[in-house]
Structures are given as structure tokens and as C-alpha cells.
Design a protein around this nucleic acid. Structure first.
Lengths: 110, 110
DNA sequence: AACTCATATCGATATATGTCAATATAAAAG
DNA sequence: CTTTTATATTGACATATATCGATATGAGTT
């Protein structure tokens, strides 16, 4: 089984200011592609809007007009990209935004 | 015909810190999706690496292992996303990075 | 005019992926 | 163990798009 903890944060060389290697471009593009989906951005903003900083997956399903499998899919994509962390508490799974990951993504564009 | 000048910079509401509308999510995602392509990131870094800040399209074709139509396609996508500006000088067309656009994109993740 | 070079567009194809219904798994309660 | 609820996975389908060869357009030259 896959861990419920946050995946490692592999960070990213600056995008501009020097030619980037093919590998660097590929991994950076993969990250951007994760954000290149309206549903995922809405999920991110929903999580960010919570005062507690975390949201149960069930709430996210109710909030968007998407099916449960689709929401689960998007959460998985963002989790595997290191953008979200998750924690199981009983039957529920709570998702959080991995701030450092967003910061490193921002630094890519510096 | 389309103008050779920089397209207008329509800017972007903060992504986190408040629920984002469906329209906002769509336009932001479109921008991220443009960067979600390794070839385009390599093109960006190639342009950024130039001391003059601009590159002739022909150089970009030679630098990457992609065909001329493919490079032309990627440049068009980035141009229409407001990430690049272009200027024709004689037979050649020179592309530049639109810094403000990248800055506003960074601000999306603040 | 014709020729050359640079760039853009067209058409076709292959791959990636968003979406859902159906099903599976996991956990708690009875 | 059975039931219920929450989440994940599977399989299928549709859409988007990256890529290329062929061709068109545009600018300069002779």
C-alpha cells in the first residue's frame, strides 16, 4: 500500500536564467500540468479556504459538480505531485495543501 | 491578420485564499497548461538565456530536436497565452518573454 | 516575374487524460 | 459477520493536443 504521508519534495531548478535540461523541463512541466486543470484549481482553492487548512474528501465531492471517482482521481494526481498531503482519521481522509511545494513552484518562475 | 504586438495582459485573481469561480479556475488552468509542456519550458529557457532577451524563431528550431511546424505551434500557443511577444524584422521573427505575465502567474500561487 | 529563406497553417495520427458507472477496498458500528 | 459509509480502483469512452509531412504565406533578392 501507498503511504498516507506526504511524498518527498524534490525541488526544482530555476526555469529562466540558463538553459534547462530535458529532464528538468519534463519534471517542471509535469507539475504545471497538474495545475492545468480547472477542477484541480477549484479543489485547491476549496482546501485553502478552510480555516483549519484541511478538508475531508467527502466535502470536496459535495462542493464540486463532479462525481466521487473524478474528485478522487484529481486528489490522487495532486497528492502524487506533492501538492497535497492526506491523513486518515477514522473513515475520513483529510487533505491539506503542501505549502512548500507551491513555494518551490513559484520559485520556478522567478 | 493577427497583430504582431503583445496581447493584452488580463490578470489573475489569487488562487488560494478564497474560493475561486469556475471562470477564474478555467483561465488560470489554461495558463498553467501552457507551461505544462516540456518543449515549451525549454523554449522559454532558451529565450531567457539570451543576453539580448530575444531569439529568432529559426534559432529555436535548430536548438530543439523538434520540427519547424511543432516549434511554430508551441510559440503560437505561448504567444496567445500572453507569455511571449514577437516582432518581425525582415524575414525573421524575434520572440521575447513577457515578464509581467510570468509575474502575474507567480502571484497566482501566493 | 521567379527564386530563396523564414514562418505559419493544414490534415492526419497517436497519445494522454478527464469523466463516469460499476466495483472494490477500508473502517467503523451494530 | 453483516451493514453502512467513505474512499479508491477499474474499464470504457470522449476529447484534447503534441507531433509530423506537406503545403501555404510572407519578405527579401535578383
Amino acid at each position: 500500500m501507498k503511504s498516507l504521508k506526504t511524498p518527498p519534495i524534490f525541488c526544482c531548478p530555476p526555469l529562466l536564467g540558463g538553459r534547462v535540461t530535458e529532464t528538468e523541463a519534463a519534471s517542471a512541466a509535469a507539475l504545471f500540468r497538474v495545475l492545468g486543470e480547472p477542477a484541480r484549481l477549484q479543489l485547491l482553492s476549496l482546501i485553502a479556504a478552510q480555516p483549519s487548512g484541511e478538508v475531508c474528501a467527502c466535502e470536496l465531492v459535495e462542493s464540486l459538480g463532479l462525481s466521487q471517482p473524478t474528485v478522487s482521481h484529481h486528489l490522487k494526481v495532486m497528492y502524487e505531485a506533492g501538492l497535497l498531503s492526506k491523513e486518515r482519521r477514522g473513515t475520513w481522509i483529510y487533505y491539506r495543501i503542501v505549502q512548500e511545494r507551491l513555494v518551490s513552484l513559484r520559485d520556478l518562475l522567478a
